[in-house]
Design a binder for these strands. Structure first.
Lengths: 209, 209
DNA sequence: GTCTATAACGAGATAGAC
DNA sequence: GTCTATCTCGTTATAGAC
Protein backbone atom coordinates (compact mmCIF):
# COMPACT_ATOMS: atom_id res chain seq x y z
CA UNK A 1 0.00 0.00 0.00
CA UNK A 2 2.85 2.38 -0.60
CA UNK A 3 2.50 5.38 -2.92
CA UNK A 4 3.37 4.67 -6.50
CA UNK A 5 7.04 4.46 -7.22
CA UNK A 6 8.79 4.29 -10.52
CA UNK A 7 10.87 1.34 -9.32
CA UNK A 8 9.85 -1.69 -11.33
CA UNK A 9 9.17 -4.17 -8.54
CA UNK A 10 10.78 -5.87 -5.55
CA UNK A 11 11.20 -3.73 -2.43
CA UNK A 12 14.90 -4.68 -2.11
CA UNK A 13 16.31 -6.97 0.54
CA UNK A 14 13.21 -7.22 2.70
CA UNK A 15 12.49 -9.91 5.25
CA UNK A 16 10.76 -12.10 2.73
CA UNK A 17 13.86 -12.15 0.55
CA UNK A 18 16.15 -12.89 3.45
CA UNK A 19 13.92 -15.79 4.48
CA UNK A 20 14.14 -17.19 0.97
CA UNK A 21 17.91 -16.79 0.93
CA UNK A 22 18.41 -18.72 4.14
CA UNK A 23 15.85 -21.37 3.24
CA UNK A 24 17.41 -21.87 -0.17
CA UNK A 25 20.81 -22.52 1.31
CA UNK A 26 19.33 -24.91 3.86
CA UNK A 27 17.47 -26.92 1.23
CA UNK A 28 20.55 -27.10 -0.95
CA UNK A 29 22.74 -28.36 1.84
CA UNK A 30 20.36 -30.35 4.05
CA UNK A 31 17.29 -31.06 1.93
CA UNK A 32 13.69 -29.95 2.34
CA UNK A 33 13.16 -32.52 5.10
CA UNK A 34 16.43 -31.60 6.76
CA UNK A 35 15.63 -28.18 8.17
CA UNK A 36 12.82 -26.46 10.06
CA UNK A 37 11.26 -23.06 10.47
CA UNK A 38 13.20 -22.85 13.71
CA UNK A 39 16.50 -23.06 11.80
CA UNK A 40 15.57 -20.12 9.60
CA UNK A 41 14.20 -18.10 12.49
CA UNK A 42 17.32 -18.62 14.57
CA UNK A 43 19.59 -17.54 11.77
CA UNK A 44 17.59 -14.39 11.05
CA UNK A 45 16.97 -13.56 14.70
CA UNK A 46 13.19 -13.60 14.34
CA UNK A 47 10.41 -15.84 15.63
CA UNK A 48 8.89 -18.70 13.70
CA UNK A 49 5.53 -16.93 13.93
CA UNK A 50 7.05 -14.18 11.87
CA UNK A 51 7.94 -16.65 9.16
CA UNK A 52 4.35 -17.79 9.03
CA UNK A 53 3.32 -14.23 8.29
CA UNK A 54 5.42 -14.24 5.12
CA UNK A 55 4.77 -17.82 4.09
CA UNK A 56 1.61 -19.56 5.26
CA UNK A 57 3.37 -22.90 5.56
CA UNK A 58 6.46 -24.81 4.67
CA UNK A 59 4.89 -26.03 1.44
CA UNK A 60 4.26 -22.47 0.25
CA UNK A 61 7.79 -21.48 1.21
CA UNK A 62 9.12 -24.47 -0.68
CA UNK A 63 7.18 -23.61 -3.78
CA UNK A 64 8.32 -19.99 -3.65
CA UNK A 65 11.89 -21.25 -3.41
CA UNK A 66 11.62 -23.28 -6.60
CA UNK A 67 9.86 -20.50 -8.50
CA UNK A 68 12.52 -17.97 -7.59
CA UNK A 69 15.32 -20.43 -8.30
CA UNK A 70 13.86 -21.28 -11.71
CA UNK A 71 13.46 -17.59 -12.54
CA UNK A 72 17.09 -16.92 -11.75
CA UNK A 73 18.16 -19.95 -13.69
CA UNK A 74 16.15 -18.93 -16.71
CA UNK A 75 17.58 -15.43 -16.49
CA UNK A 76 21.06 -16.89 -16.45
CA UNK A 77 20.26 -18.94 -19.54
CA UNK A 78 18.87 -15.91 -21.35
CA UNK A 79 21.97 -13.99 -20.39
CA UNK A 80 24.18 -16.73 -21.81
CA UNK A 81 22.25 -16.66 -25.07
CA UNK A 82 22.66 -12.89 -25.26
CA UNK A 83 26.38 -12.88 -24.45
CA UNK A 84 27.69 -15.94 -26.24
CA UNK A 85 26.94 -16.78 -29.86
CA UNK A 86 29.03 -19.94 -29.86
CA UNK A 87 27.18 -23.10 -28.83
CA UNK A 88 30.18 -24.65 -27.12
CA UNK A 89 30.82 -21.49 -25.12
CA UNK A 90 27.17 -21.53 -24.09
CA UNK A 91 27.44 -25.07 -22.87
CA UNK A 92 30.57 -24.31 -20.92
CA UNK A 93 28.83 -21.36 -19.30
CA UNK A 94 25.97 -23.68 -18.43
CA UNK A 95 28.32 -26.09 -16.74
CA UNK A 96 29.92 -23.27 -14.80
CA UNK A 97 26.57 -22.50 -13.18
CA UNK A 98 26.81 -25.90 -11.55
CA UNK A 99 30.51 -25.56 -10.82
CA UNK A 100 29.88 -22.32 -8.98
CA UNK A 101 27.25 -24.01 -6.83
CA UNK A 102 29.66 -26.81 -5.92
CA UNK A 103 32.27 -24.33 -4.84
CA UNK A 104 29.77 -22.88 -2.41
CA UNK A 105 29.27 -26.34 -0.93
CA UNK A 106 25.76 -26.44 -2.26
CA UNK A 107 23.73 -28.66 -4.50
CA UNK A 108 21.28 -27.93 -7.28
CA UNK A 109 18.07 -27.02 -5.48
CA UNK A 110 15.95 -29.09 -7.83
CA UNK A 111 18.40 -31.99 -7.81
CA UNK A 112 17.96 -32.21 -4.07
CA UNK A 113 14.20 -31.93 -4.40
CA UNK A 114 14.20 -34.64 -7.06
CA UNK A 115 15.71 -37.01 -4.50
CA UNK A 116 13.02 -36.05 -2.00
CA UNK A 117 10.29 -35.98 -4.62
CA UNK A 118 8.13 -38.68 -3.03
CA UNK A 119 7.80 -36.71 0.18
CA UNK A 120 7.30 -33.27 -1.34
CA UNK A 121 4.03 -31.40 -0.84
CA UNK A 122 2.09 -31.47 -4.14
CA UNK A 123 2.48 -27.72 -4.81
CA UNK A 124 6.23 -28.24 -5.08
CA UNK A 125 6.23 -31.22 -7.39
CA UNK A 126 5.06 -29.56 -10.58
CA UNK A 127 7.57 -26.79 -10.14
CA UNK A 128 10.42 -29.28 -9.99
CA UNK A 129 9.38 -31.00 -13.20
CA UNK A 130 9.00 -27.64 -14.90
CA UNK A 131 12.57 -26.77 -13.98
CA UNK A 132 13.98 -29.88 -15.59
CA UNK A 133 11.80 -29.51 -18.67
CA UNK A 134 13.10 -26.00 -19.14
CA UNK A 135 16.71 -27.07 -18.71
CA UNK A 136 16.29 -29.83 -21.23
CA UNK A 137 14.62 -27.56 -23.79
CA UNK A 138 17.39 -24.98 -23.51
CA UNK A 139 20.09 -27.61 -23.84
CA UNK A 140 18.44 -29.10 -26.91
CA UNK A 141 18.51 -25.71 -28.61
CA UNK A 142 22.19 -25.28 -27.76
CA UNK A 143 23.09 -28.75 -28.96
CA UNK A 144 21.22 -28.29 -32.22
CA UNK A 145 23.00 -25.00 -32.72
CA UNK A 146 26.32 -26.67 -32.03
CA UNK A 147 25.60 -29.40 -34.56
CA UNK A 148 24.65 -26.73 -37.09
CA UNK A 149 27.80 -24.74 -36.35
CA UNK A 150 29.74 -28.00 -36.68
CA UNK A 151 31.49 -27.46 -33.35
CA UNK A 152 29.72 -30.36 -31.66
CA UNK A 153 29.59 -33.97 -32.69
CA UNK A 154 26.57 -35.38 -30.92
CA UNK A 155 26.71 -39.05 -30.05
CA UNK A 156 22.92 -39.37 -30.10
CA UNK A 157 19.75 -37.37 -30.59
CA UNK A 158 19.85 -33.84 -29.19
CA UNK A 159 17.13 -34.87 -26.75
CA UNK A 160 19.05 -37.86 -25.44
CA UNK A 161 22.29 -35.94 -25.20
CA UNK A 162 20.53 -33.06 -23.44
CA UNK A 163 19.07 -35.42 -20.86
CA UNK A 164 22.45 -36.99 -20.37
CA UNK A 165 24.02 -33.58 -19.79
CA UNK A 166 21.51 -32.83 -17.05
CA UNK A 167 21.80 -36.31 -15.57
CA UNK A 168 25.57 -36.29 -15.71
CA UNK A 169 25.90 -32.93 -14.00
CA UNK A 170 23.29 -33.66 -11.35
CA UNK A 171 24.82 -37.07 -10.73
CA UNK A 172 28.33 -35.70 -10.53
CA UNK A 173 27.16 -33.17 -7.95
CA UNK A 174 25.42 -35.92 -6.03
CA UNK A 175 28.37 -38.29 -5.91
CA UNK A 176 30.81 -35.48 -5.23
CA UNK A 177 28.99 -34.44 -2.05
CA UNK A 178 30.29 -37.17 0.22
CA UNK A 179 33.84 -36.42 -0.93
CA UNK A 180 33.48 -32.68 -0.44
CA UNK A 181 35.90 -32.01 -3.27
CA UNK A 182 34.79 -29.60 -6.03
CA UNK A 183 37.75 -30.71 -8.16
CA UNK A 184 36.13 -34.09 -8.45
CA UNK A 185 33.07 -32.47 -9.94
CA UNK A 186 35.04 -30.40 -12.40
CA UNK A 187 36.84 -33.46 -13.71
CA UNK A 188 33.55 -35.27 -14.10
CA UNK A 189 31.98 -32.36 -15.97
CA UNK A 190 34.93 -32.14 -18.34
CA UNK A 191 34.77 -35.88 -19.01
CA UNK A 192 31.05 -35.60 -19.67
CA UNK A 193 31.38 -32.87 -22.27
CA UNK A 194 34.28 -34.59 -23.93
CA UNK A 195 32.34 -37.83 -24.21
CA UNK A 196 29.02 -36.44 -25.31
CA UNK A 197 30.27 -33.83 -27.75
CA UNK A 198 33.62 -35.00 -29.01
CA UNK A 199 36.84 -33.05 -28.98
CA UNK A 200 36.72 -29.40 -29.91
CA UNK A 201 37.55 -28.88 -33.64
CA UNK A 202 41.02 -27.51 -34.42
CA UNK A 203 39.78 -24.48 -36.33
CA UNK A 204 37.56 -23.29 -33.51
CA UNK A 205 40.58 -22.38 -31.39
CA UNK A 206 40.00 -18.85 -32.64
CA UNK A 207 38.65 -17.66 -29.33
CA UNK A 208 39.19 -14.48 -27.35
CA UNK A 209 42.43 -14.54 -25.36
CA UNK B 1 25.28 -67.08 22.26
CA UNK B 2 23.58 -70.02 20.59
CA UNK B 3 25.10 -73.49 20.50
CA UNK B 4 27.28 -74.08 17.49
CA UNK B 5 25.40 -74.87 14.35
CA UNK B 6 26.72 -76.01 11.03
CA UNK B 7 24.66 -73.36 9.24
CA UNK B 8 27.02 -70.76 7.90
CA UNK B 9 25.33 -67.63 9.23
CA UNK B 10 22.04 -65.71 9.04
CA UNK B 11 19.08 -67.28 10.84
CA UNK B 12 16.72 -66.81 7.85
CA UNK B 13 13.96 -64.23 7.60
CA UNK B 14 13.88 -63.16 11.21
CA UNK B 15 12.48 -59.94 12.54
CA UNK B 16 15.79 -58.16 12.15
CA UNK B 17 15.86 -58.97 8.45
CA UNK B 18 12.28 -57.88 7.94
CA UNK B 19 13.00 -54.58 9.64
CA UNK B 20 15.94 -54.02 7.32
CA UNK B 21 13.83 -54.90 4.28
CA UNK B 22 11.14 -52.36 5.12
CA UNK B 23 13.61 -49.70 6.16
CA UNK B 24 15.63 -50.16 2.99
CA UNK B 25 12.59 -49.62 0.82
CA UNK B 26 11.60 -46.56 2.84
CA UNK B 27 15.05 -44.96 2.55
CA UNK B 28 15.16 -45.64 -1.18
CA UNK B 29 11.79 -44.07 -1.79
CA UNK B 30 11.53 -41.37 0.89
CA UNK B 31 15.06 -40.79 2.13
CA UNK B 32 16.58 -41.33 5.57
CA UNK B 33 14.92 -38.17 6.88
CA UNK B 34 11.61 -39.08 5.25
CA UNK B 35 10.50 -41.98 7.41
CA UNK B 36 10.29 -42.88 11.08
CA UNK B 37 10.39 -45.91 13.33
CA UNK B 38 6.62 -45.62 13.49
CA UNK B 39 6.39 -46.25 9.73
CA UNK B 40 8.37 -49.47 9.99
CA UNK B 41 6.51 -50.59 13.09
CA UNK B 42 3.11 -50.01 11.49
CA UNK B 43 4.04 -51.96 8.39
CA UNK B 44 5.35 -54.93 10.36
CA UNK B 45 2.61 -54.83 12.97
CA UNK B 46 5.01 -54.40 15.87
CA UNK B 47 5.76 -51.61 18.34
CA UNK B 48 8.52 -49.08 17.94
CA UNK B 49 9.97 -50.34 21.21
CA UNK B 50 10.50 -53.67 19.52
CA UNK B 51 12.54 -51.98 16.82
CA UNK B 52 14.78 -50.46 19.45
CA UNK B 53 15.51 -53.95 20.72
CA UNK B 54 16.98 -54.90 17.31
CA UNK B 55 18.61 -51.58 16.53
CA UNK B 56 19.59 -49.27 19.35
CA UNK B 57 18.76 -46.18 17.32
CA UNK B 58 18.04 -44.90 13.87
CA UNK B 59 21.73 -44.27 13.23
CA UNK B 60 22.62 -47.91 13.93
CA UNK B 61 19.77 -49.08 11.73
CA UNK B 62 20.96 -46.76 8.99
CA UNK B 63 24.48 -48.05 9.15
CA UNK B 64 23.29 -51.66 9.08
CA UNK B 65 21.27 -50.82 5.98
CA UNK B 66 24.28 -49.55 4.10
CA UNK B 67 26.50 -52.43 5.17
CA UNK B 68 23.96 -55.00 4.01
CA UNK B 69 23.29 -53.12 0.79
CA UNK B 70 27.00 -52.87 0.03
CA UNK B 71 27.48 -56.58 0.74
CA UNK B 72 24.73 -57.49 -1.70
CA UNK B 73 26.09 -55.10 -4.25
CA UNK B 74 29.57 -56.54 -3.97
CA UNK B 75 28.17 -60.06 -4.25
CA UNK B 76 26.38 -59.04 -7.42
CA UNK B 77 29.62 -57.65 -8.83
CA UNK B 78 31.52 -60.82 -7.96
CA UNK B 79 28.76 -62.83 -9.58
CA UNK B 80 29.04 -60.77 -12.74
CA UNK B 81 32.79 -61.34 -12.86
CA UNK B 82 32.26 -65.06 -12.45
CA UNK B 83 29.53 -65.34 -15.09
CA UNK B 84 30.64 -62.93 -17.80
CA UNK B 85 34.14 -62.84 -19.25
CA UNK B 86 33.33 -60.03 -21.67
CA UNK B 87 33.90 -56.53 -20.31
CA UNK B 88 31.02 -55.00 -22.23
CA UNK B 89 28.63 -57.68 -21.00
CA UNK B 90 29.83 -56.99 -17.48
CA UNK B 91 29.11 -53.32 -17.85
CA UNK B 92 25.66 -54.01 -19.23
CA UNK B 93 24.96 -56.29 -16.30
CA UNK B 94 26.10 -53.50 -13.99
CA UNK B 95 23.69 -51.07 -15.60
CA UNK B 96 20.87 -53.57 -15.28
CA UNK B 97 21.31 -53.56 -11.49
CA UNK B 98 20.24 -49.92 -11.59
CA UNK B 99 17.55 -50.52 -14.18
CA UNK B 100 16.00 -53.19 -11.97
CA UNK B 101 15.91 -50.77 -9.08
CA UNK B 102 14.17 -48.13 -11.20
CA UNK B 103 11.51 -50.61 -12.22
CA UNK B 104 10.75 -51.19 -8.58
CA UNK B 105 10.22 -47.46 -8.17
CA UNK B 106 13.29 -47.21 -5.98
CA UNK B 107 16.51 -45.32 -5.98
CA UNK B 108 20.08 -46.35 -5.27
CA UNK B 109 20.26 -46.45 -1.48
CA UNK B 110 23.61 -44.70 -1.42
CA UNK B 111 22.59 -42.19 -4.06
CA UNK B 112 19.77 -41.10 -1.80
CA UNK B 113 22.09 -40.98 1.18
CA UNK B 114 24.61 -38.95 -0.79
CA UNK B 115 21.94 -36.27 -1.22
CA UNK B 116 21.26 -36.32 2.51
CA UNK B 117 24.93 -36.64 3.39
CA UNK B 118 25.14 -33.42 5.41
CA UNK B 119 22.45 -34.55 7.80
CA UNK B 120 23.56 -38.17 8.18
CA UNK B 121 24.75 -39.47 11.54
CA UNK B 122 28.55 -39.91 11.41
CA UNK B 123 28.45 -43.73 11.57
CA UNK B 124 26.64 -43.76 8.24
CA UNK B 125 28.90 -41.39 6.35
CA UNK B 126 31.97 -43.56 6.00
CA UNK B 127 29.88 -46.46 4.80
CA UNK B 128 28.46 -44.35 1.97
CA UNK B 129 31.89 -43.27 0.77
CA UNK B 130 33.09 -46.85 0.93
CA UNK B 131 30.24 -47.92 -1.31
CA UNK B 132 31.16 -45.43 -4.02
CA UNK B 133 34.87 -46.22 -3.76
CA UNK B 134 34.13 -49.89 -4.29
CA UNK B 135 31.88 -49.17 -7.29
CA UNK B 136 34.52 -47.02 -8.86
CA UNK B 137 37.27 -49.58 -8.32
CA UNK B 138 35.20 -52.35 -9.90
CA UNK B 139 34.30 -50.20 -12.87
CA UNK B 140 37.91 -49.24 -13.45
CA UNK B 141 38.87 -52.91 -13.63
CA UNK B 142 36.07 -53.59 -16.12
CA UNK B 143 36.98 -50.59 -18.27
CA UNK B 144 40.64 -51.56 -18.33
CA UNK B 145 39.66 -55.07 -19.34
CA UNK B 146 37.46 -53.69 -22.10
CA UNK B 147 40.25 -51.54 -23.41
CA UNK B 148 42.53 -54.57 -23.36
CA UNK B 149 39.94 -56.71 -25.15
CA UNK B 150 39.53 -53.86 -27.63
CA UNK B 151 35.75 -53.83 -27.21
CA UNK B 152 35.70 -50.44 -25.49
CA UNK B 153 37.07 -47.15 -26.75
CA UNK B 154 37.44 -45.04 -23.63
CA UNK B 155 37.09 -41.30 -24.11
CA UNK B 156 39.28 -40.55 -21.10
CA UNK B 157 41.21 -42.22 -18.29
CA UNK B 158 39.58 -45.33 -16.85
CA UNK B 159 39.21 -43.47 -13.57
CA UNK B 160 37.41 -40.51 -15.13
CA UNK B 161 35.18 -42.70 -17.25
CA UNK B 162 34.37 -44.89 -14.24
CA UNK B 163 33.36 -41.85 -12.21
CA UNK B 164 31.25 -40.63 -15.08
CA UNK B 165 29.50 -43.98 -15.31
CA UNK B 166 28.55 -43.80 -11.64
CA UNK B 167 27.59 -40.14 -11.88
CA UNK B 168 25.61 -40.64 -15.06
CA UNK B 169 23.63 -43.55 -13.69
CA UNK B 170 22.99 -41.94 -10.32
CA UNK B 171 22.02 -38.69 -12.00
CA UNK B 172 19.75 -40.39 -14.48
CA UNK B 173 17.98 -42.13 -11.62
CA UNK B 174 17.70 -38.83 -9.80
CA UNK B 175 16.23 -36.87 -12.68
CA UNK B 176 13.98 -39.75 -13.71
CA UNK B 177 12.26 -39.83 -10.32
CA UNK B 178 9.97 -36.83 -10.81
CA UNK B 179 8.86 -38.24 -14.16
CA UNK B 180 8.20 -41.71 -12.78
CA UNK B 181 9.10 -43.28 -16.10
CA UNK B 182 11.72 -46.08 -16.09
CA UNK B 183 11.95 -45.85 -19.89
CA UNK B 184 13.50 -42.45 -19.46
CA UNK B 185 16.22 -43.99 -17.36
CA UNK B 186 16.90 -46.78 -19.82
CA UNK B 187 17.35 -44.31 -22.66
CA UNK B 188 19.72 -42.25 -20.56
CA UNK B 189 21.78 -45.29 -19.59
CA UNK B 190 22.06 -46.37 -23.23
CA UNK B 191 23.15 -42.88 -24.26
CA UNK B 192 25.73 -42.86 -21.49
CA UNK B 193 27.36 -46.12 -22.51
CA UNK B 194 27.31 -45.17 -26.16
CA UNK B 195 29.00 -41.86 -25.42
CA UNK B 196 31.59 -43.07 -22.96
CA UNK B 197 32.58 -46.28 -24.68
CA UNK B 198 31.87 -45.82 -28.36
CA UNK B 199 29.82 -48.14 -30.55
CA UNK B 200 30.27 -51.85 -30.12
CA UNK B 201 32.77 -53.26 -32.65
CA UNK B 202 31.31 -55.25 -35.56
CA UNK B 203 33.26 -58.41 -34.89
CA UNK B 204 32.12 -58.66 -31.29
CA UNK B 205 28.60 -59.53 -32.35
CA UNK B 206 29.64 -63.13 -31.82
CA UNK B 207 27.65 -63.49 -28.64
CA UNK B 208 25.39 -66.25 -27.39
CA UNK B 209 21.96 -66.05 -29.06
C1' DG C 1 11.48 -60.62 22.10
C1' DT C 2 7.56 -58.02 22.33
C1' DC C 3 4.43 -55.26 24.66
C1' DT C 4 2.27 -50.74 27.11
C1' DA C 5 3.18 -46.52 28.87
C1' DT C 6 5.47 -42.52 28.96
C1' DA C 7 9.14 -39.34 28.80
C1' DA C 8 11.47 -35.64 26.32
C1' DC C 9 11.91 -33.10 22.56
C1' DG C 10 11.14 -30.70 18.16
C1' DA C 11 8.10 -29.85 14.36
C1' DG C 12 4.51 -26.91 12.01
C1' DA C 13 1.02 -23.92 13.02
C1' DT C 14 -2.33 -20.40 15.29
C1' DA C 15 -4.25 -16.68 18.50
C1' DG C 16 -3.90 -12.49 19.98
C1' DA C 17 -1.15 -8.61 22.08
C1' DC C 18 1.86 -4.90 20.69
C1' DG D 1 5.25 -7.06 10.89
C1' DT D 2 6.81 -9.02 14.78
C1' DC D 3 6.29 -10.79 19.18
C1' DT D 4 4.94 -14.33 23.23
C1' DA D 5 2.41 -18.03 24.39
C1' DT D 6 0.35 -22.08 23.37
C1' DC D 7 -1.46 -26.10 20.85
C1' DT D 8 -1.14 -30.43 18.58
C1' DC D 9 1.21 -33.78 16.72
C1' DG D 10 5.08 -36.75 15.37
C1' DT D 11 9.56 -38.61 16.53
C1' DT D 12 13.14 -40.94 19.06
C1' DA D 13 13.98 -43.24 23.00
C1' DT D 14 13.54 -45.64 27.66
C1' DA D 15 11.48 -48.26 31.72
C1' DG D 16 9.52 -52.06 33.12
C1' DA D 17 5.77 -55.71 32.77
C1' DC D 18 4.80 -60.03 30.34
Amino acid sequence: MQPMVTRTQQPRSDTRTRILDVAERLVQSRGFNGFSYADIAAELGVSTASLHYHFAGKAELGRALIVRYAERFNSALADIDARLPDARARLEAYVSIYTDLMHKGRFCLCGMLAAEYETLPPPMRDAVVEFFDRNEAWLISVLELGAEQRTMHLTGSAENVARMVVSGLEGAMLVTRPYGDPARFKAAAAQLLLSLLGAVPIDSEAQRD
